[in-house]
Amino acid sequence: MSDMQDMEKTESEEQIARIAAEMRLANDGLSDQDKAYFCDARPQAVEPYRGIMEKFANWARSQSLWILGFGTGCGAIELRPLMTSRFDMYRYGIQPRPTPRQSSVFVIGGYASVKTVKRIVRSYEQMQGPKFVLGLGSCTVNGGMYWDSYNTINRIDYYIPVDVYITGCMPRPEALLAGFNRLKQMIREGRCEGMNTYAENFDWYKANQKQIIKDWNMPDYNW
């Protein structure tokens, strides 16, 4: 079984390399009319500040986490108790935000179907850095209950960089709070550079995404 997996692995790696080589970032799939609306720049890795300034910035970031209001899967159902008086995440400076532009944390709520992955990628790219991703539920780790489904992906970290996983099906609100605390700690330690990881390995991520999203009708990078 492991042999077969290895073989498939190399095969898909080759495929990724091929897609990456073919890929150009000039939004070539778009019509001329649409091209004008989108930028064709690649994401750039941004150097952090140095010394105490970055420490201070990270502290401020960790104290004000704004979740993108996008319930991508069934995990979103436990976000609602988390927001309300039983668990009250506002106490920790965590609050939901309706637009990706203003939010800094993306909670992947469990399984992600291919159709949703496309929206996840788009929303993730629209968020302004530094941005953090929380993988919620076992489905984001290895597919969970739906490991053999033809429409849900198995590993979300092949498509966007993930900072913290919270396992379980479903993870309890307490587990979510623990995950958020872990994320805060990691931010303060300066270990959450997922945005730079994404920029540096952009070709790899993009090739992975293109391998499953068959009708790619959006710009290659949505800022």
Binding site: Q63, S64, W66, Q128, P130
Partner: peptide, 13 residues
Amino acid sequence: LDILKNNFKRTGI
């Protein structure tokens, strides 16, 4: 904290 965080964002459109 929210204002600080927003001003410490690395990118802006």
